[in-house]
Amino acid sequence: MALIEMEKATFAYDTLPVFKDIDLQVKEGEIFCLFGPNGCGKSTLIYCLLGISRLKSGSVRLCGKDINKMKREEIARVLAYIPQLHEKPFPFKVIDVVLMGRASHTGFFATPRASDLAVAEEALERVGMLKYKDRPYTQISGGETQLVLVARALAQKTPVLVMDEPTSHLDFRNELMFLETVARLVEETKISVIMATHFPNHAFYFETSNTKTKIALMNNQQFTVQGSPSEVLNEENMLNTFNIKSAVVTFPWESGHVKQIVPLKTL
């Protein structure tokens, strides 16, 4: 059974249609990349998966259950969300931020218990951030913040992580570190990932690191193509979606090959 199933999903803001009849399935231990031009509706699709926005028609099922019949905390026990840009309202300590991931496992008037603290510390350990646990999270870098938010999501103990362009504000090294962390988490914990991204090479990265990877190309309110990165990311599809000339290159690295797609020219 798929962890997440979206069927004939349609969404519109008032009369402005965003996407139509989208089908999507995510299975255990799989990375699902959403790729498409600005404004194609990736974030809206993610909000519909999280139950923050409501579909106009169609259905979302999480672990087989209709999302409209689930309470907020039930959804939060299936899907954990890592936002694109997190505004830091107060200089909370890193550990306090990660502890917030335990909200769906705690009563309304309760405060986190020792067991929640243990889960939060373990999550920080997994992303290699435990040494920062008592730092104000306003005093760590953007890349570190993103890892702390991954730790918060891990503390939710969900089978699926949902990420919306998680690397868009990170520098070269931090971006790579983030991808490595995600690939390692998927391998170690069999967690699934849904990730909206503007970088097709992220999908290639996961594919070459031997993670089960799917990518969907979103354009004109539809998934135009869906499949493995090698099937989807080719010159023809880039031409149709972005109206650009591009080339797929492979080069040997370590014991295998690395694949990248290089944009060459707008048309």
Binding site: Y47, L50, G51, I52, R72, E73, E74, I75, A76, R77, L79, A80, Y81, P83, H86, E87, P89, F90, F92, D96, M100, G101, A103, S104, R152, Q156, V162
Partner: peptide, 15 residues
């Protein structure tokens, strides 16, 4: 604490 993360994040955290 959790509400101070903003509406969307707080909802995604299960509140």
């Amino acid at each position: 604490n959790i509400l101070s993360m903003g509406d969307d994040e707080a909802q995604a955290l299960g509140v």
